[in-house]
Design a protein around this nucleic acid. Structure first.
Length: 599
DNA sequence: CTGGGGTCCT
DNA sequence: AGGACCC
């Protein structure tokens, strides 16, 4: 796709972050809907890792001690969530759900409960059939859908009904807000989950603005983003400026501490349990306007910390709302798999062995679940999926590895000497040793049980001896086993059709004349069969049928002097003569076809 | 007096 | 191998 055209259409300017509401708690509620009306907390060891909104109403919080939660809310229902299998499975489903509704596979995962979705507005928002939402949806581009920040438009941008165009940024974000709303409703219709969404132009801004209206809502960061000529500061600066410095994604505990120390001229309180003291809060605004502050000063503040070399520039960018990182393409398999458990105390080799065995079994099961597929291309969930009882003979399905970890890593964390010295939280205490992953673990003929025993004795115990050469004297509070250094296995057919139809489309045919034939209409999600290689373009899809009569209808005037990157470049739009909706120019034909197929 | 995961960079 | 960051 021509970058300027993409930008003109608002395509590259809109993305959303998806945050599943109290995710672990929702997984339990999906299993047992009776839990929805009760205060529900999910426990890992001594901690409430998350809780539902009924529990929050009664004062429970994430990362609260179980003791405290029980004291505050004696009738809290507590579910154990140390085994992440069901959460990971739900996370995969939700990732798949958004991917199948998104062009270009541009859905990036962040943890189990967060997704980043780069919008493709050329292909995503047309309503073809009001009885079949899978081929599009209706919208009215004269408004943002859902809450915005700020809630009302700035006076200088206020619509007066006479305005004939909005900035391309404005159009892109309006469409993004309608697309996100549509997808949220699809999510709620087809899955037991709800999400909170943020819509903006970058991961940074979309993530932060998404926090404003939780749960089950969405927020769009309104234009103008930059300062305008008439002296109005842009919404990016006013929005970002209020945030505490440590709340900015990319500025973690260590960098935030360094910055606060520099601004305050003293050490802030480090108490991890109490949180940051009010008087130690430092806002983005204060940092940005601090005398001498800039990329060079930030580099100086971070000196000696081991951060990447351009960290000052990167952080200065974040403070000013600049985040150029792309939404990554969704990966077929993770680049690392690890299993860990924590303990009160493990201090001899026999107990180490006892803990290692179940961890290793889990690791091998995860490798089979996440790194293999069967011959038909359907993913298997366990190594034993094919030997179910039943009237069939066990179907001997041939499995193969999609990705292979080349390295095995064993990590431990030692219990810190019991002095509650302030500041020892700052270093992690983890140490590790690695070795090549033995080939035998990739066998499909041996059982996981047998492989695990062999792996522990042959490989992991020797690693442990390297890690802790002293026979005793260790007091482990955590053991982690990881399969890392993942290599893609040969033969995976990840290139081509189905992975990124949009990319194929982009690389075909002459440009920009190709866009003369670009149908302004296509299904919200176009499947492979709708893709017509012969004609170097997409056919129109109406009620699931292919309509080849419109291919040359949309003639698009292409002017190369349009500045597609500027927020002020005009995107013309029109008012529909039938329903009066505001429609951007590139969607006008789609909209008229929508009316023509209505009965 | 913290969970069980992940990513990327040096 | 470790250390920052993310959820």
């Amino acid at each position: 796709m021509n970058a300027e055209l993409t930008s003109l259409m608002g395509g590259s300017q809109s993305m959303s972050t998806w945050d599943y509401d109290c995710f672990y708690a929702s997984v339990f509620e999906a299993e047992n809907p009776a839990l929805k009306s009760l205060p529900l907390a999910v426990q890992q060891k001594q901690i409430v890792v998350t809780c539902n909104y009924e529990a929050r109403r009664r004062g429970l919080r994430k990362l609260q001690l179980i003791k405290e939660a029980k004291r505050i809310c004696p009738d809290v229902v507590i579910m154990l969530g140390e085994d992440l299998t069901k959460f990971r499975d739900a996370s995969k489903e939700l990732h798949a759900f958004l991917k199948k509704n998104t062009w270009g596979n541009r859905v990036e995962k962040l943890g189990f409960d967060e997704l980043l979705n780069r919008h493709d507005l050329q292909n995503s928002f047309f309503q073809l059939d009001k009885f079949d939402p899978t081929v599009g949806f209706a919208f009215d581009a004269s408004t943002f859908c859902g809450p915005t920040y700020p809630a009302e438009p700035c006076p200088s941008v206020k619509e007066d009904g006479e305005q004939l165009w909005f900035s391309s940024l404005d159009v892109g974000l309006r469409l993004g807000s309608h697309l996100a709303n549509y997808l949220r409703h699809q999510l709620e219709q087809h899955t037991p989950y709800t999400a909170t969404v943020g819509i903006s132009t970058s991961k940074l801004l979309a993530k932060l603005v998404g926090n404003l209206n939780k749960p089950r809502l969405q927020t769009t960061l309104r234009p103008p983003y930059s300062a305008t000529d008439d002296g109005q500061g842009g919404n990016v600066a006013s929005f970002l400026g209020q945030h505490e410095i440590g709340k900015i994604p990319g500025i973690g505990f260590k960098m935030a501490h360094r910055i606060r120390t520099h601004i305050l001229g003293r050490e802030p309180n480090l108490d991890v349990y109490e949180g940051l003291a009010e008087e130690d809060n430092v806002s983005v605004d204060v940092v940005r306007s601090f005398p001498g502050m800039g990329p060079v000063k930030l580099d100086e503040i971070f000196r000696g910390g081991g951060w990447p070399k351009d960290i000052g520039t990167k952080v200065w960018g974040l403070l000013n709302g600049v985040d150029d990182t792309e939404v990554a393409v969704g990966k077929a398999f993770p680049s690392q798999i690890s299993i860990e458990d924590s303990y009160s105390q493990v201090d001899n080799l026999q107990s180490v062995r006892n803990e290692l065995l179940p961890l290793t079994r889990k690791l091998l099961r995860r490798m089979h679940a996440d790194l293999t597929e069967d011959e038909e291309g359907e993913e298997l969930t366990t190594g034993h999926a094919t030997v179910q009882a039943g009237r069939h003979l066990p179907v001997k399905r041939k499995k193969r590895w999609l990705g292979c970890p080349r390295t095995l890593r064993l990590s431990t964390r030692s219990r810190p000497p019991s002095l509650p010295d302030v500041g020892h939280q700052l270093h992690s205490n983890r140490i590790s040793k690695s070795c090549p992953m033995p080939r035998f673990v990739f066998s499909f003929s041996e059982t996981v049980e047998a492989l695990a025993e062999r792996l522990v004795e042959d490989t992991i115990v020797p690693l442990f001896r390297r890690l802790h050469p002293d026979k005793s004297g260790y007091k482990l509070s955590l053991i982690n086993i990881a399969a890392t250094n993942m290599m893609e296995c040969a033969g995976s057919e990840n290139s081509g059709v189905g992975q990124d139809i949009g990319a194929m489309f982009r690389n075909q045919g002459p440009r920009p004349t190709q866009f003369s034939n670009l149908p302004a209409v296509c299904s919200h999600r176009v499947t492979e069969s709708h893709f017509d290689n012969q004609h170097h373009g997409l056919k129109h899809v109406v009620d699931g049928e292919v309509d080849q009569t419109r291919g040359d209808a949309a003639v698009l005037e292409w002017t190369s002097d349009e500045d597609g990157e500027s927020e002020n470049s005009a995107t013309p739009h029109d008012e529909c003569t039938i329903c009066g909706a505001f429609i951007p120019w590139f969607a006008v034909q789609a909209h008229s076809i929508y009316h023509s197929v209505q009965t």
